[in-house]
């Protein structure tokens, strides 16, 4: 053992310090001071109007209290229409988005598709992921006009980027042997996908799809801010008019639906896996 070389007597009586996470002294101090300077600079450039904030606290309290007494009735028809529109957009865009993202995911998986197809599909995914939903919505509203169609297209487009990427990763990491066994039986490409690939990625596809439905609903709630339909417009109006009790009612409905969707997705995912 090399304990013979190591003389413990040297260490005894000397203080011990935990070895630092960043080994180099210089680098460690540069990182720490850099971070502190950044924080100070960031703080300095945010001018907070504290008296305005203080005034706002009163309104903030009103808003919190509104949650104990939400007003579902006085704008019930607006809320109802907005919610229905949000749900319609969610359902339609999820269905279309999922249907389109399956072939794109296949195309973006290097182990099932040729290089040119792979590059095109990865490109589509990259564009869809890099563009914020709300920005896409602004552009689509400008092109297609106000209304839920723009919202529907936005959410479908966003679904493609999200779902295809994760699904493609799942296909790429699937068990090769199972797929090869199907290939060895002389199956055509479509048969191979159907029998060798699909059964392996199906549980993940279902889980991700339901998760995406959840996200789409949440996103549909803000698309109304830029005129792309859904509950967002109603919510925006409520805030503009300082109708906190109506806003609270809308937010509560959103929270409840999201919770219900999460609960549902938990059940479905537990069943398919």
């Amino acid at each position: 053992m090399n304990t013979d070389i190591f003389n413990v007597q040297v260490k005894i009586g000397k203080p011990w310090k935990k070895p630092p996470f960043v080994q180099s002294n210089l680098l460690r101090w540069v990182l720490i001071t850099g971070f502190v300077i950044y924080l100070i600079a960031a703080y300095m450039t945010i001018d907070v109007n504290w008296s305005r904030v203080y005034e706002g606290l009163e309104r903030g309290k009103k808003f919190v209290l509104a949650f104990t007494n939400p007003d579902f009735t006085s704008r019930s028809s607006d809320i109802w229409e907005g919610m229905i529109e949000s749900i319609l957009m969610t359902v339609a865009s999820s269905v279309v988005g999922i249907l389109i993202s399956i072939p794109i995911a296949l195309g973006a998986a290097r182990n099932v598709s040729p290089l040119p197809v792979y590059l095109i599909c990865r490109g589509i995914i990259a564009i869809s992921r890099a563009l914020q939903e709300i920005i896409v919505a602004i552009l689509l509203v400008a092109i297609f006009g106000f209304g839920p169609l723009a919202g529907f297209l936005t959410l479908s487009f966003a679904t493609i980027g999200f779902l295809s990427k994760l699904l493609a990763e799942d296909i790429e990491s699937m068990d090769k042997v199972q797929a090869e066994a199907i290939k060895a039986s002389g199956a055509k490409w479509t048969q191979w996908i159907n029998y060798g690939v699909q059964p392996q990625v199906m549980p993940r596809l279902i889980g991700l799809s339901i998760y995406r439905v959840d996200i789409n609903f949440r996103e549909s709630a803000i698309l109304g801010l830029v005129g792309a339909g859904g509950i967002g417009a109603t919510l925006n109006t409520a805030f503009d008019r300082y109708e906190y009790d109506t806003a609270a009612a809308i937010l509560l409905i959103i929270i409840v639906i999201v919770m219900a969707l999460e609960y549902l997705s938990g059940i479905v995912r537990a069943r398919v896996q």
Binding site: R52, V53, G56, L57, R59, G60, F63, I134, R218, E219, A221, I222, L225, G232, L235, N236, F239, D240, Y242, A247, L251, I254, I255, V258, M259
Partner: peptide
């Protein structure tokens, strides 16, 4: 559950 844009709307109304 609530998007940051909605939180922003709310906070702008408040502060």
């Amino acid at each position: 559950s609530i998007n940051s844009l909605i939180w922003a709307l709310l906070l702008i109304a408040i502060i």
